[in-house]
């Protein structure tokens, strides 16, 4: 069964009046970011989006999440076209986006508050999800009192506390150190294995993309579109050691091969923009 369907999704940013950039030597105030993305994601699937900077991965996530409108084309979650944030979709950001004036517990409760969940149930659910991420005892800490890894755990717990059918993750581990990132990848897989929600995960890291995904979607350089989809047929559950296997190396090489030209193109694009 399909959970997410993208049909010829396009997005063009229009700069403010008077502002222009040079695209291919032509000054313009319209920047095409996505040029016709078609993609279908199955229920319970873990899909990672990889692509060079500026390939519109995050914009695509925003469109699925209803935070940004597509210029044309349609994104469906379930059977309904997305027009605004859907209660069954949750979002995790690179910079955690926890409210610094709320404790870990209160941050999780925010998502439940705005849904009108009664107080007792909010408390209970927030505690349960903090415990799920090994944060028992840290309920009353403010984000500033937590390490980056712990903050991102709270943010993921907040997203999952609403039992979302779709979880959108925008480079959630990019700001973390390598060790913490490894740990959180493992935790995410462990929890996903239990709840089997559909995850769309944007990343810059090929290793991360391959390690987590059922399928890696490689995007082209701007304007972004799907270049190739690579099936990751590694067995689950996966532990960290799977990265040392020949099968993993082959898949990593495959993704890199597809990605390489696009990265080069993207770099050329930025050089032009800089001139």
């Amino acid at each position: 069964m399909d959970r997410i369907r993208l049909e010829d999704v396009r997005k063009t940013f229009t700069l403010k009046a008077g502002q222009t950039v040079s695209l291919g030597g032509v000054p313009t105030n319209r920047i095409p970011v996505l040029s016709g993305v078609d993609l279908t994601i199955r229920k319970g699937e873990f899909v990672t989006l990889a692509g060079p900077s500026g390939s519109g991965k995050s914009v695509l996530l925003d469109i699925i999440g209803g935070l940004t409108e597509a210029s044309s084309g349609t994104a469906y979650v379930g059977a309904t076209p997305v027009t605004r944030p859907d209660p069954s979709t949750a979002y995790v950001f690179q910079q955690y986006a926890l409210f610094p004036w709320r404790t870990a517990q209160q941050n999780i409760e925010f998502a439940l508050e705005v849904r009108g969940v009664p107080k007792a149930e909010r408390r209970e659910r927030a505690r349960r999800y903090l415990a799920l991420f090994g944060l028992r005892g840290f309920e009353d800490r403010y984000p500033a009192q937590l390490s980056g890894g712990m903050q991102q755990r709270v943010a993921i717990a907040r997203a999952l506390s609403t039992d979302p059918e779709v979880l959108l993750m925008d480079e959630p581990f990019a700001a973390l150190d390598a060790q913490t990132r490894d740990i959180l990848q493992g935790e995410l897989l462990r929890i996903w294995d239990e709840i089997k929600t559909t995850i769309v995960f944007v990343t810059h890291s090929i290793d991360e993309a391959v390690y987590l995904a059922d399928r890696v979607v490689v995007m082209t350089a701007r304007p972004g579109t799907v270049k190739e989809i690579i099936e990751i047929d590694l067995p689950r559950p996966r532990d960290l050691e799977i990265r040392n296997t020949a099968a993993f190396a082959r898949l990593r090489g495959r993704v890199w091969e597809v990605l390489r030209d696009e990265v080069t193109k993207a770099q050329r694009d930025w050089q032009i923009a800089a001139h």
């Binding site: 935070l67 944030p85 986006a97 409210f99 004036w101 925010f110 508050e113 705005v114 609403t162």
Partner: peptide, 27 residues
């Protein structure tokens, strides 16, 4: 703006965003 985006992504209404995000953030 990230706070506003996060609140919107969780389905917060405009009133929620005023009372629970903008006001405390401005304290």
């Amino acid at each position: 703006p990230l706070f506003l985006k996060a609140a919107r992504s969780m389905g917060a209404s405009d009133l929620d965003i005023f009372v629970k995000v903008i006001l405390p953030a401005s304290i």
